[in-house]
């Protein structure tokens, strides 16, 4: 029964994130436009874009190899698998046993490498530049993420996301400065990973500082559709990760029934909406920083994560 429930929740979760990912991107864009006083495109616009792109004939650059044709699927598959491991409305999904945070980080790295190789493939200056910058940012983002994982592992006793979510939901932790610091660090990492302001601007092309879009300049048709979907899925994944760790209340526990699931779904949608609103407000309020300030920004995130670890050692040493 538990296995069956796990299977059902896993499939529902997959359907939810796949359908919801472009919608979430659309909602963030819409909210941002409203906050800036524009009317904004309909939140379903990303879905429409993706469906339209799928109908178009893909064009490959002259120098492009099989990498350009395979990388989108690889990156999307890795992101999808990572997203499938992060609980949304219910815990105890079928794959909960392997939902290790290090594995999720590894799958994201796989998607990132596929993206960077796609940037290199056509042999254009923009693509190579974007790839180099993307990998450089990851150099700073990855240690911050790892130290955050250490903080969670100290508190929950495991780096398994399902366990962490369950322990944090029980709420025996109280208010923790270390969790506050870790949350800030993780948010900074999430901003960098999703190419959002202040690290990159998702709304522009052909700025000298662009990173994510530079690697996709030569993608078109269904390949571009898959890349767009991957980016949307990654944003959803990071939102879901932040929600699963720092806002775990309301999530249905393992082995609960449809009633609790729908309650958990309601909670999850509210959390996603809140995070989208916060992102839109943050992006409207702040300017993009110079590329060579980004290591400082992510270095700050790493420092916060280290501080969180130090404080957690203090409090566990005292308890």
């Amino acid at each position: 029964m538990v296995v069956f429930g796990g299977l059902i929740t896993q499939l529902l979760h997959l359907a939810l994130i796949l359908a919801g990912a472009p919608l979430l991107t659309g909602v963030v864009r819409w909210l941002k436009a409203r906050l800036m006083g524009r009317r904004g495109a309909h939140p379903l616009q990303p879905w429409r874009d993706i469906l339209k792109l799928l109908r178009k004939r893909p064009i490959l650059a002259d120098g492009a190899s099989i990498v350009s044709r395979a990388a989108p699927y690889l990156a999307f598959g890795a992101t999808l698998l990572a997203a499938a491991l992060i609980p949304s409305f219910a815990q105890g999904m079928l794959l909960a046993g392997i939902a290790d945070l290090l594995l999720i980080a590894g799958l994201l790295a796989l998607a990132r490498v596929a993206l960077a190789l796609n940037g290199h493939d056509a042999g254009t200056p923009f693509g190579g530049m974007g790839a180099a910058r993307e990998m450089t940012f990851a150099v700073f983002a990855e240690p911050a993420l790892l130290v955050c994982v250490m903080v969670f592992a100290v508190l929950a006793g495991s780096s398994n996301l399902d366990t962490i979510g369950a322990v944090f939901r029980e709420g025996a932790l109280g208010l923790r400065v270390s969790l506050l610091f870790a949350a800030l660090a993780l948010v900074a990492v999430a901003l960098a990973e999703n190419a959002r302001v202040p690290v990159d601007n998702p709304a522009t092309h052909l700025e000298l500082t662009m990173v994510h879009e530079a690697m996709l300049l030569e993608a078109s048709g269904r390949h571009l559709a898959v890349w767009e979907m991957q980016a949307a899925l990654k944003l959803t994944l990071w939102f879901a990760l932040l929600a699963a760790i720092f806002l775990p209340f309301g999530t249905a526990s393992a082995g609960s029934g449809p009633l609790l699931w729908s309650l958990g779904l309601l909670f999850w949608l509210v959390k996603m909406g809140l995070l989208a609103l916060m992102l839109a407000m943050f992006e409207s309020a702040i300017a993009k920083m110079r590329v060579f300030r980004v290591p400082d920004f992510l270095g700050g995130a790493l420092l916060l994560a280290l501080l969180a670890a130090a404080l957690i050692f203090v409090s566990t040493g005292l308890a």
Partner: peptide
Amino acid sequence: AVGLTWLAVRRRSSLAPTREPAWD
């Protein structure tokens, strides 16, 4: 995941790609 994505995408979009100079 990769295989199913490929199948799903190819079902909706079957046109063979063409080659052009890089847009760059």
